[in-house]
Amino acid sequence: MLTLSLIGIGCGDPGQLTRAAIGAINAADLVLIPRKGTAKSDLADLRRTICADVLTNKQTRIAEFDLPLRDATDADYRKGVDDWHDAVASAWSQTIASHLEGEGKVALLIWGDPSLYDSSLRISRRLDPLPDIEVIPGITSIQALCAAHALPLNDIGEPFLVTTGRRLREGGWPAGVDTIVVMLDGGIAFQSLDPEGLQIWWGAYLGMPDQIIMSGALVEAGPRIVAARQEARERHGWIMDSYILKRRP
């Protein structure tokens, strides 16, 4: 029987690994490390570093594979994502089959937590045969962002909403909440909002050595964040960021 362990590894700092995550890595027969191209080689390097730091089981093998790219030009967003998930599932299956003979324990090191804006659980259910699936939770970018700013996410007794940059840009400020967390924002969606009365807490490369954080009134901090984001993206070739917006009366 094949078991697939989806292990949340936090946001890049090996110190964020839980004991359960370390145990699951060492219990695996095979650890898969995806490569996302030279522009995002830092992500594969950090996974290699984590394995070098915590992997003590000499029987565990490590296999790297190239992660298929999603066709961002597809006009049908959902179909494009579905096609991409199929391609990723095929890459997983081929890599597993080339190292294991139908049974064993496979581990995938998942950035943040497998349950939050990550597709690994959906992709894993496309594998044939379907493996047993084990999830080891990890520290999310939301937790890392709040910790970096020493910020309580919710106001007393009040809700908050987690959304994407695309939804914020297309739909505007969501009704019924004064606090939102924005993830997967490649287009800097906060620029589409009226900044009056809004506060922002922003972070990029959270948990990594190159972590950047900024905060303040959106009308003042927004332009600084846009400039810092552009400079960081040009320097690294990629950026992974998120932010919190609060609306004040």
Rank of each mutant, 00 (worst) to 15 (best):
S119Q: 00
R167M: 11
T179H: 02
Q199R: 09
L145Y: 06
P114W: 07
G216F: 01
T179I: 00
D113S: 13
A150L: 01
A217C: 10
R125F: 11
W201A: 15
W111D: 12
E158C: 04
G112I: 05
R125N: 09
A147M: 07
Q143C: 15
W202G: 13
V219F: 01
G187H: 12
L151G: 09
L218D: 15
V182N: 13
M183D: 09
V106R: 05
P159H: 05
I136K: 02
P209E: 13
L168H: 00
I225T: 14
L193Y: 01
G187M: 12
H149A: 02
E170Q: 02
L151Q: 12
P159W: 08
I225Y: 12
I136A: 09
G207I: 08
T140N: 07
L121P: 04
A175F: 03
S120Q: 07
D113K: 08
G207C: 07
I142A: 05
E220M: 14
L130N: 11
V181L: 14
A204P: 08
V182P: 04
P131N: 10
V106L: 06
I139D: 06
C146P: 03
Q191E: 15
D194H: 04
S192C: 10
G186C: 09
A107K: 00
P223V: 02
S120R: 04
I200Q: 09
P152T: 08
L127D: 13
E220L: 11
K105Y: 00
D132C: 14
C146V: 11
A221D: 10
A221M: 14
P209R: 11
G197W: 03
F190W: 10
P223F: 01
I133L: 12
L161Y: 01
V219Y: 00
T140M: 08
L130W: 04
A217D: 15
P209A: 07
S192W: 03
I139E: 12
R167P: 01
R169V: 11
I142K: 04
A144F: 04
F160H: 11
G187R: 15
G187S: 11
E170P: 00
E196M: 13
R126H: 08
T164P: 05
I156P: 12
G112D: 04
D113H: 07
D118L: 01
P174Q: 14
I188Q: 13
R169T: 06
G207T: 07
S119P: 01
S215W: 00
S124V: 15
T140F: 10
I110K: 05
A175T: 15
I213S: 14
P223S: 02
V162A: 08
E196S: 12
S124P: 09
S119D: 05
R166K: 00
V106A: 12
L193R: 02
G165P: 01
A148M: 05
R122H: 03
G203L: 11
R122W: 00
P129L: 08
A144Q: 11
E196Y: 06
S215M: 06
E196G: 05
A175R: 11
G171K: 01
Q211A: 15
T179Y: 01
N154W: 03
L198I: 02
S115F: 13
A204I: 10
E158D: 03
G172P: 02
I180N: 00
D113Y: 10
R167C: 11
W201G: 09
W201H: 14
E134N: 10
K105G: 04
L184V: 08
A147K: 10
G157R: 03
G222C: 09
W173T: 05
L153V: 11
R169P: 00
G176Q: 13
Q211W: 04
D118R: 04
